[in-house]
Design a binder for these strands. Structure first.
Lengths: 235, 235
DNA sequence: AATTAATGTTTCACTATGAAACAATAGTAA
DNA sequence: TTACTATTGTTTCATAGTGAAACATTAATT
């Protein structure tokens, strides 16, 4: 495999994406592990010379998750000098390329635009990219040490997600088409990292007028069966 | 005057700043007018090769306003293709340089990071930069047509400011050290673009526990004198 | 001393919210 | 059939917050 071509991409500009999913219990993010290094990092990429920034991120996300039409939000752009670590980048390339030149555009300074994505965990088959061994889900409360400033980026993404959870009804994107009230509450609790009162949560959600109630879900348990809901597409 | 040097700055990366001030009645922003073109744009600039992004913006702001230690917030990064207009950039340069080369780094595609600043209107003597004739205050509800996507950038900055007004107590930065409750209310009304109820506004502000009450301000009017307040520095 | 205009405060109805109790129900077991 | 259990759906009640209006205070003027 050859090194990425410097003429195809804008130099100095990258993006990193924090891809959130909900396992049914915990909030998780996708992390990559680089070949032969044991190093973890966020999935990211570069912007083609004639490609909108947003589209570059969508493209990368599609490659990594197979999903199209994902909920994507830009939250911050990272441009400190501490994040510049050409040696690390060199080691990553050397771990799988026999011939790495002295100078290369990937060793220069990058300013990175942070995006987060919310996806239906059940629909994804994570795909590693050329540089990485594996890509997998990790609990947000057990993220390993990441390269560059990526732990900081994850933290910022979480903050942004929390503060905008309500106004944007973000939970839509983390659940399957139909879900129970309990599942919805669990998403909220996972994101906000705090318990919600069951009765009040239900009242609040129903009062928003964005939920449509469907048939009951008979799970086989010896207790009342919950209704299934979907988000009202009119909103 | 010579053209800016391509080796000194990161190519393809710019910033634009929406600088808000409060006149005592209206919310205003600083706009530049380019030499010999009649064109208006946001003040912006480029990032030096070894300079943190945030610092580049602070530096530009200091040059434009003379102020240090300004409240600055990054709100969005703009990377569409529509914003790429090399012809416009060429005309701006040609309007004051006799010799403009066919190729120049300023004519290439730029991704721009948007910041907004909140400053004390009374403390500023706006300073034009090399490319601009003048820099002046304009009411946010009467912004002229701007170059590139700058009208869109202003709109996004306003949205961000509005949604974060309360949580970050942003009004601090738009007022002088001591101010009346009425002035504080006027800042809120100017930013939110809607009237606030006087009694409730006062109650809410006082209940936050962030205001310190000082002596009264005797303006000479034949009516009760208002107290002066300052923001409690403990917060 | 009366008047005026702006500011400071209180009241009251109404809504929102947190905690708890109550009601309904799908399955299990007697 | 009938109790029993676990979970979900709903109601109640006390409390806090909010919007609109009225009331109270006061600096200057007449």
């Amino acid at each position: 495999m050859s090194l990425p071509d410097s003429t195809q991409y804008l130099p100095h500009i990258a993006y990193d994406s924090v891809i959130f999913g909900f396992s049914g219990e915990k909030l998780k993010i996708l992390l990559m592990e680089y070949h032969n290094t044991g190093w973890f990092a966020l999935p990211g990429g570069f912007v083609k010379v004639s490609e909108p920034l947003d589209e570059a991120v969508s493209r990368g996300l599609k490659e990594r998750t197979g999903l199209d039409q994902i909920y994507l939000e830009q939250f911050h752009t990272f441009g400190s000098l501490e994040r510049v670590k050409p040696d690390v980048m060199r080691k990553i390339l050397e771990a799988q390329h026999s011939e790495v030149p002295e100078k290369h555009w990937l060793f220069e300074r990058f300013i990175s635009v942070g995006y987060y994505a919310l996806i239906d965990y059940t629909k994804v088959e994570p795909q590693p990219d050329a540089l990485s061994d594996s890509i997998d889900w990790y609990d947000v409360d057990a993220v390993p040490e990441l390269l560059f400033d990526h732990n900081f980026i994850v933290q910022k993404a979480l903050e942004h997600l929390r503060t905008h959870l309500d106004q944007k009804l973000l939970s839509v994107n983390l659940l399957p088409e139909r879900f129970t009230m309990k599942e919805l509450q669990q998403v909220y609790e996972a994101i906000l990292d705090e318990k919600q009162n069951r009765a009040n949560f239900q009242r609040k959600m129903l009062s928003l007028g964005i939920l449509e109630r469907h048939e009951k879900l008979y799970s086989g348990g010896s207790h009342k069966a919950p209704f299934l809901y979907s988000f009202n597409s009119k909103n």
